[in-house]
């Protein structure tokens, strides 16, 4: 009882802090509208925040699968790409309005993940990771080859629509919803099963957990959400081609954000994505062509120096130390 009483104020502080943050984020576009591009918050800040919020969602999706079940997915951008192409094709070729294309993108990404997962999620450790890398590379080639549908290498142009606040609110809404959803799922029996798979998959299987069902469901859910982000990104960008959509550094962004914040925790990817964007915008904005190089260095550096992430620095050990994955149970 005493412990709970002591922890109450901290929880209260955290909650009210979160609330203030959300209110500020919700009001930001109003500032932008008044400042007419010159104020403290201009359109490009809003654009950049939208990108950040999309990364929050993507990193949370990636972490939901890789951090909670321990299946490290090197090709998650494939599902982002499916969503982007669903929106791109339906809007530019079939003249659909935007929102319904998001639903189609989400469903096709989710369905693809369930189908692909049913095969690849039988693979363990690095074999799964690289099979997903292959899936991603394969989808990129398909997008290049299926020219009548996807526009091939030259890509597709979407009807332009420059309503920055709309994209911002969509991205914000999705990020909040997705993080809240994952936080909820983690506390349910389903979340417990995911953690069980991460800790000891054969053990979970022998205790009655249908591991392939749990893994593919989680995979499908995350992919569904990434598909929506892909659709929004495509419309905001007004142009897609195989290389900018199926961009492997985007998967790396998700992984870096998760590991930087704290792999396997719910808030970790949020902190990591925010920090990554801040670094990118403020610290190395002036070295734009260097940013992917810095990114490679960052990934190497985190793995060597900060494997438990920011959350780990703050003393939270509930996450997943990446050095621990695939390391357990050496002996038979």
């Amino acid at each position: 009882m005493l412990e709970i009483a002591q922890r109450q104020p901290i929880r209260w502080l955290r909650r009210s802090g979160l609330l203030v943050l959300l209110v500020v984020l919700a009001l930001l576009p109003l500032l932008a509208a008044r400042g007419d591009g010159d104020g403290m918050v201009n359109n490009s800040t809003l654009f950049s925040l939208t990108q950040m919020l999309m990364l929050v969602t993507l990193a949370s999706n990636w972490n939901f699968v890789s951090g909670l079940t321990g299946y490290i997915d090197f090709g998650h951008v494939a599902f982002f790409g499916l969503g982007a192409y669903a929106t791109g094709i339906l809007m530019s070729k079939a003249g659909w309005p935007f929102l319904p294309t998001l639903a189609v993108g989400a469903l096709s990404a989710g369905a693809a993940a369930v189908l692909i997962g049913r095969a690849t999620m039988h693979l363990k450790g690095p074999y799964f990771s690289i099979a997903m890398l292959g899936t991603f590379a394969a989808l990129r080639e398909i997008a290049r080859v299926a020219r009548p549908l996807t526009g091939g290498g030259p890509g597709l142009t979407l009807p332009p629509y420059l309503n920055r606040p709309l994209f911002y609110y969509l991205a914000l809404g999705q990020a909040v919803l997705v993080v809240a959803l994952y936080r909820w799922v983690r506390r349910t029996e389903f979340g417990l099963m995911m953690l069980g798979i991460r800790e000891d998959e054969p053990g979970a299987e022998m205790r009655g957990v249908n591991t392939i069902f749990v893994k593919t469901s989680a995979f499908g859910l995350a992919a569904l959400s990434s598909g929506i982000v892909g659709g929004m990104w495509a419309y905001q960008n007004t142009f897609i081609d195989p290389d900018i959509v199926f961009l492997d550094s985007r998967t790396i962004d998700m992984a870096i954000a998760s590991v930087l914040g704290g792999l396997g925790t719910i808030i970790g990817p949020v902190i990591g994505a925010g920090l990554l964007y801040w670094l990118r915008d403020v610290v190395w904005a002036s070295f734009l062509q260097w940013h992917l190089i810095v990114q490679g260095l960052l990934l190497i550096g985190i793995m060597l120096v900060l494997p438990n992430g920011i959350i780990g620095l703050l003393g939270d050990r509930s996450g997943l130390d990446p050095r621990r994955i695939w390391a357990r149970r050496r002996k038979r």
């Binding site: 992984a255 990934l299 621990r324």
Partner: peptide
């Protein structure tokens, strides 16, 4: 474990 070398070499 292999994940570390996988991520480092990917970097």
């Amino acid at each position: 474990p292999p994940l570390v070398s996988l991520l480092v070499t990917y970097g």
